[in-house]
Protein backbone atom coordinates (compact mmCIF):
# COMPACT_ATOMS: atom_id res chain seq x y z
CA UNK A 1 0.00 0.00 0.00
CA UNK A 2 1.63 3.26 -1.04
CA UNK A 3 1.39 6.34 1.09
CA UNK A 4 3.00 9.70 0.54
CA UNK A 5 3.78 12.57 2.83
CA UNK A 6 5.01 16.08 2.45
CA UNK A 7 8.72 16.05 3.11
CA UNK A 8 9.56 17.49 6.50
CA UNK A 9 13.09 18.37 5.43
CA UNK A 10 12.09 21.63 3.80
CA UNK A 11 9.22 22.56 6.10
CA UNK A 12 9.48 26.10 7.37
CA UNK A 13 7.14 27.89 9.78
CA UNK A 14 5.04 29.06 6.84
CA UNK A 15 4.62 25.49 5.64
CA UNK A 16 3.53 24.14 9.03
CA UNK A 17 -0.22 24.48 8.45
CA UNK A 18 -0.09 22.87 5.03
CA UNK A 19 2.09 20.08 6.44
CA UNK A 20 -0.31 19.47 9.34
CA UNK A 21 -3.30 19.30 7.03
CA UNK A 22 -1.53 16.85 4.76
CA UNK A 23 -0.59 14.76 7.81
CA UNK A 24 -4.17 14.74 8.98
CA UNK A 25 -5.49 13.82 5.54
CA UNK A 26 -2.94 11.08 5.20
CA UNK A 27 -3.88 9.64 8.56
CA UNK A 28 -7.56 9.83 7.65
CA UNK A 29 -6.96 8.02 4.39
CA UNK A 30 -4.83 5.41 6.08
CA UNK A 31 -7.50 4.85 8.70
CA UNK A 32 -10.27 4.54 6.15
CA UNK A 33 -8.27 2.06 4.10
CA UNK A 34 -7.63 0.10 7.27
CA UNK A 35 -11.35 -0.10 8.01
CA UNK A 36 -12.13 -1.45 4.56
CA UNK A 37 -9.25 -3.88 4.70
CA UNK A 38 -10.61 -5.22 7.98
CA UNK A 39 -14.11 -5.47 6.57
CA UNK A 40 -12.75 -7.43 3.63
CA UNK A 41 -10.80 -9.78 5.90
CA UNK A 42 -13.92 -10.29 8.00
CA UNK A 43 -15.97 -11.24 4.97
CA UNK A 44 -13.37 -13.67 3.65
CA UNK A 45 -13.21 -15.17 7.12
CA UNK A 46 -17.00 -15.54 7.18
CA UNK A 47 -16.96 -17.35 3.84
CA UNK A 48 -14.35 -19.77 5.17
CA UNK A 49 -16.43 -20.43 8.28
CA UNK A 50 -19.63 -20.99 6.29
CA UNK A 51 -17.81 -23.33 3.93
CA UNK A 52 -16.78 -25.49 6.86
CA UNK A 53 -20.24 -25.68 8.45
CA UNK A 54 -21.71 -28.63 6.47
CA UNK A 55 -18.94 -30.85 7.88
CA UNK A 56 -20.20 -30.11 11.37
CA UNK A 57 -23.39 -32.06 10.72
CA UNK A 58 -21.25 -35.17 11.02
CA UNK A 59 -19.81 -34.03 14.33
CA UNK A 60 -22.70 -32.70 16.39
CA UNK A 61 -20.81 -33.25 19.63
CA UNK A 62 -18.58 -30.24 19.01
CA UNK A 63 -21.61 -28.01 18.42
CA UNK A 64 -23.47 -29.34 21.44
CA UNK A 65 -20.51 -28.65 23.72
CA UNK A 66 -20.39 -25.08 22.45
CA UNK A 67 -24.13 -24.60 22.75
CA UNK A 68 -23.77 -25.46 26.40
CA UNK A 69 -20.92 -23.02 26.86
CA UNK A 70 -22.43 -20.21 24.82
CA UNK A 71 -26.17 -20.72 25.32
CA UNK A 72 -26.86 -22.60 28.52
CA UNK A 73 -24.35 -20.65 30.57
CA UNK A 74 -25.94 -17.39 29.41
CA UNK A 75 -29.33 -18.46 30.70
CA UNK A 76 -28.90 -16.98 34.16
CA UNK A 77 -28.26 -13.45 32.95
CA UNK A 78 -30.97 -13.70 30.29
CA UNK A 79 -33.62 -14.95 32.71
CA UNK A 80 -32.81 -12.46 35.46
CA UNK A 81 -32.62 -9.55 33.04
CA UNK A 82 -35.79 -10.65 31.29
CA UNK A 83 -37.63 -10.80 34.57
CA UNK A 84 -36.58 -7.32 35.60
CA UNK A 85 -37.21 -5.82 32.18
CA UNK A 86 -40.70 -7.34 32.15
CA UNK A 87 -41.43 -6.04 35.61
CA UNK A 88 -40.28 -2.52 34.72
CA UNK A 89 -42.38 -2.64 31.57
CA UNK A 90 -45.37 -3.62 33.68
CA UNK A 91 -44.80 -0.70 36.02
CA UNK A 92 -44.10 1.92 33.39
CA UNK A 93 -46.82 0.62 31.10
CA UNK A 94 -49.40 0.75 33.84
CA UNK A 95 -48.41 4.28 34.88
CA UNK A 96 -48.90 5.56 31.35
CA UNK A 97 -51.93 3.50 30.34
CA UNK A 98 -53.95 4.21 33.49
CA UNK A 99 -54.16 7.89 32.48
CA UNK A 100 -55.99 6.87 29.33
CA UNK A 101 -58.15 4.34 31.18
CA UNK A 102 -56.47 1.62 29.15
CA UNK A 103 -54.87 -0.32 32.00
CA UNK A 104 -56.48 -3.55 30.70
CA UNK A 105 -54.22 -3.34 27.66
CA UNK A 106 -51.14 -3.77 29.81
CA UNK A 107 -50.72 -7.35 28.57
CA UNK A 108 -50.59 -6.19 24.97
CA UNK A 109 -48.06 -3.45 25.69
CA UNK A 110 -45.76 -5.73 27.62
CA UNK A 111 -45.96 -8.59 25.13
CA UNK A 112 -45.55 -6.50 22.00
CA UNK A 113 -42.66 -4.49 23.39
CA UNK A 114 -40.85 -7.63 24.36
CA UNK A 115 -41.55 -9.80 21.36
CA UNK A 116 -40.99 -7.14 18.72
CA UNK A 117 -38.10 -5.16 20.19
CA UNK A 118 -36.77 -5.71 23.66
CA UNK A 119 -36.50 -9.47 23.47
CA UNK A 120 -34.24 -9.67 20.42
CA UNK A 121 -32.31 -6.46 21.07
CA UNK A 122 -31.62 -6.68 24.80
CA UNK A 123 -30.92 -10.39 24.57
CA UNK A 124 -28.43 -9.68 21.77
CA UNK A 125 -26.72 -6.97 23.81
CA UNK A 126 -26.50 -9.24 26.85
CA UNK A 127 -25.27 -12.05 24.61
CA UNK A 128 -22.54 -9.79 23.26
CA UNK A 129 -21.46 -8.84 26.73
CA UNK A 130 -21.44 -12.33 28.18
CA UNK A 131 -21.01 -14.90 25.43
CA UNK A 132 -19.53 -12.71 22.71
CA UNK A 133 -16.71 -11.37 24.83
CA UNK A 134 -16.03 -14.89 26.18
CA UNK A 135 -15.78 -16.23 22.62
CA UNK A 136 -13.42 -13.45 21.57
CA UNK A 137 -11.21 -13.89 24.60
CA UNK A 138 -11.09 -17.67 24.23
CA UNK A 139 -10.22 -17.62 20.54
CA UNK A 140 -7.78 -14.73 20.99
CA UNK A 141 -5.96 -16.55 23.77
CA UNK A 142 -5.84 -19.74 21.73
CA UNK A 143 -4.22 -17.68 19.00
CA UNK A 144 -1.78 -16.04 21.43
CA UNK A 145 -0.69 -19.40 22.90
CA UNK A 146 -0.19 -20.82 19.39
CA UNK A 147 -2.87 -23.47 19.90
CA UNK A 148 -4.54 -22.52 16.59
CA UNK A 149 -1.18 -22.67 14.83
CA UNK A 150 -0.43 -26.01 16.47
CA UNK A 151 -3.74 -27.37 15.26
CA UNK A 152 -2.96 -26.24 11.72
CA UNK A 153 0.32 -28.12 11.80
CA UNK A 154 -1.50 -31.21 13.09
CA UNK A 155 -3.56 -31.03 9.90
CA UNK A 156 -6.71 -30.00 11.78
CA UNK A 157 -8.28 -26.88 10.30
CA UNK A 158 -8.89 -24.54 13.27
CA UNK A 159 -11.70 -22.84 11.39
CA UNK A 160 -13.58 -26.10 11.12
CA UNK A 161 -12.60 -27.40 14.55
CA UNK A 162 -12.75 -24.32 16.76
CA UNK A 163 -14.51 -21.45 14.99
CA UNK A 164 -17.26 -23.34 13.14
CA UNK A 165 -18.88 -24.98 16.18
CA UNK A 166 -18.79 -21.72 18.13
CA UNK A 167 -20.35 -19.80 15.25
CA UNK A 168 -23.13 -22.32 14.80
CA UNK A 169 -23.74 -22.48 18.55
CA UNK A 170 -24.08 -18.70 18.82
CA UNK A 171 -26.35 -18.48 15.80
CA UNK A 172 -28.66 -21.22 17.11
CA UNK A 173 -28.64 -20.02 20.71
CA UNK A 174 -29.57 -16.41 20.01
CA UNK A 175 -33.23 -16.89 18.97
CA UNK A 176 -33.73 -19.35 21.82
CA UNK A 177 -32.31 -16.90 24.35
CA UNK A 178 -34.41 -14.07 22.93
CA UNK A 179 -37.54 -16.22 23.17
CA UNK A 180 -36.77 -17.12 26.77
CA UNK A 181 -36.13 -13.45 27.53
CA UNK A 182 -39.50 -12.45 26.10
CA UNK A 183 -41.35 -15.26 27.86
CA UNK A 184 -39.84 -14.50 31.24
CA UNK A 185 -40.45 -10.81 30.64
CA UNK A 186 -44.14 -11.40 30.06
CA UNK A 187 -44.31 -13.36 33.29
CA UNK A 188 -42.55 -10.50 35.07
CA UNK A 189 -45.05 -8.07 33.60
CA UNK A 190 -47.87 -10.33 34.78
CA UNK A 191 -46.55 -10.42 38.35
CA UNK A 192 -46.30 -6.64 38.52
CA UNK A 193 -49.43 -5.78 36.56
CA UNK A 194 -51.86 -8.35 37.82
CA UNK A 195 -50.22 -9.29 41.09
CA UNK A 196 -49.19 -5.87 42.38
CA UNK A 197 -51.14 -3.29 40.48
CA UNK A 198 -54.48 -5.03 40.19
CA UNK A 199 -54.96 -5.27 36.45
CA UNK A 200 -57.57 -7.89 35.59
CA UNK A 201 -55.90 -11.23 34.89
CA UNK A 202 -58.43 -12.27 32.25
CA UNK A 203 -58.07 -8.98 30.40
CA UNK A 204 -54.30 -9.20 30.59
CA UNK A 205 -54.07 -12.55 28.82
CA UNK A 206 -57.07 -12.32 26.48
CA UNK A 207 -56.09 -8.94 25.06
CA UNK A 208 -52.58 -10.22 24.56
CA UNK A 209 -53.88 -13.29 22.75
CA UNK A 210 -56.01 -11.09 20.56
CA UNK A 211 -53.48 -8.47 19.59
CA UNK A 212 -50.20 -10.35 19.36
CA UNK A 213 -50.03 -11.93 15.94
CA UNK A 214 -47.95 -15.03 15.24
CA UNK A 215 -46.72 -13.96 11.81
CA UNK A 216 -46.48 -10.21 12.23
CA UNK A 217 -44.99 -10.06 15.68
CA UNK A 218 -43.52 -13.34 16.84
CA UNK A 219 -42.01 -14.50 13.55
CA UNK A 220 -40.59 -11.05 12.92
CA UNK A 221 -39.06 -11.11 16.35
CA UNK A 222 -37.49 -14.49 15.62
CA UNK A 223 -36.11 -13.22 12.32
CA UNK A 224 -34.60 -10.26 14.14
CA UNK A 225 -32.95 -12.48 16.70
CA UNK A 226 -31.56 -14.73 13.95
CA UNK A 227 -30.05 -11.72 12.21
CA UNK A 228 -28.65 -10.38 15.50
CA UNK A 229 -27.29 -13.81 16.37
CA UNK A 230 -25.51 -14.02 13.03
CA UNK A 231 -24.00 -10.56 13.43
CA UNK A 232 -23.06 -10.90 17.09
CA UNK A 233 -21.39 -14.30 16.68
CA UNK A 234 -19.63 -13.30 13.48
CA UNK A 235 -18.16 -10.22 15.16
CA UNK A 236 -17.19 -12.18 18.27
CA UNK A 237 -15.34 -14.99 16.47
CA UNK A 238 -13.72 -12.69 13.93
CA UNK A 239 -12.37 -10.31 16.56
CA UNK A 240 -10.91 -13.26 18.43
CA UNK A 241 -9.37 -14.78 15.32
CA UNK A 242 -7.98 -11.44 14.14
CA UNK A 243 -6.68 -10.26 17.52
CA UNK A 244 -3.04 -9.37 18.03
CA UNK A 245 -1.55 -12.39 19.83
CA UNK A 246 -0.62 -10.39 22.94
CA UNK A 247 -2.51 -9.75 26.17
CA UNK A 248 -3.15 -6.16 25.13
CA UNK A 249 -4.39 -7.33 21.76
CA UNK A 250 -6.85 -9.78 23.29
CA UNK A 251 -8.22 -7.21 25.72
CA UNK A 252 -8.72 -4.70 22.91
CA UNK A 253 -10.42 -7.34 20.82
CA UNK A 254 -12.90 -8.19 23.59
CA UNK A 255 -13.78 -4.53 24.04
CA UNK A 256 -14.23 -4.16 20.29
CA UNK A 257 -16.55 -7.17 20.21
CA UNK A 258 -18.93 -5.70 22.75
CA UNK A 259 -18.91 -2.22 21.25
CA UNK A 260 -19.20 -3.27 17.61
CA UNK A 261 -21.91 -5.82 18.35
CA UNK A 262 -23.93 -3.25 20.26
CA UNK A 263 -23.69 -0.77 17.40
CA UNK A 264 -24.42 -3.40 14.78
CA UNK A 265 -27.43 -4.77 16.66
CA UNK A 266 -28.95 -1.35 17.18
CA UNK A 267 -28.31 -0.33 13.59
CA UNK A 268 -29.73 -3.56 12.20
CA UNK A 269 -32.70 -3.21 14.56
CA UNK A 270 -33.60 0.10 13.00
CA UNK A 271 -33.32 -1.28 9.48
CA UNK A 272 -35.32 -4.40 10.26
CA UNK A 273 -38.00 -2.54 12.19
CA UNK A 274 -38.41 -0.12 9.31
CA UNK A 275 -38.76 -3.02 6.87
CA UNK A 276 -41.08 -5.09 9.01
CA UNK A 277 -43.21 -2.67 10.90
CA UNK A 278 -42.83 0.62 9.10
CA UNK A 279 -44.28 1.56 5.79
CA UNK A 280 -40.95 2.62 4.33
Amino acid sequence: MTCWRVSRLDATDDDTDAGDVMDWLQRLGHGALGVFERLGRGNLFLLQVLAGLPGLLLRPRLVILQMHSVGVLSLVIIVVSGLFVGMVLGLQGYNTLVDFGAAESLGVVVALSLVRELGPVVAALLFAGRAGSALTAEIGLMKATEQLSGMEMMAVDPIRQVIGPRFLAGFLSMPLLAAIFSAVGVIGGYFVGVGLLGVDSGAFWSQMQDKVDLHEDIYNGVIKSLVFGFAATWIAVFEGYDAMPTSEGVSRATTRTVVHTALAVLGLDFVLTALMFGDI
Binding site: T145, E146, Q147, S149, G150, M151, M153, M154, A155, D157
Partner: peptide, 22 residues
Protein backbone atom coordinates in the same frame (compact mmCIF):
# COMPACT_ATOMS: atom_id res chain seq x y z
CA UNK B 1 -6.26 -26.59 1.14
CA UNK B 2 -6.99 -30.34 1.16
CA UNK B 3 -3.63 -31.34 -0.30
CA UNK B 4 -1.77 -29.10 2.13
CA UNK B 5 -3.61 -30.62 5.08
CA UNK B 6 -2.87 -34.11 3.77
CA UNK B 7 0.83 -33.22 3.63
CA UNK B 8 0.71 -31.80 7.15
CA UNK B 9 -0.47 -35.16 8.49
CA UNK B 10 3.00 -36.41 7.59
CA UNK B 11 4.76 -33.54 9.33
CA UNK B 12 5.14 -32.99 13.02
CA UNK B 13 5.96 -29.64 14.57
CA UNK B 14 7.15 -28.85 18.05
CA UNK B 15 6.42 -25.24 18.98
CA UNK B 16 8.51 -23.23 21.40
CA UNK B 17 5.79 -23.25 24.01
CA UNK B 18 4.54 -26.73 23.22
CA UNK B 19 1.21 -25.30 22.07
CA UNK B 20 -0.75 -27.96 23.95
CA UNK B 21 -4.52 -27.62 23.96
CA UNK B 22 -5.15 -26.22 27.40
Amino acid sequence: HDALYRLRKRMGMLFQSGALLT
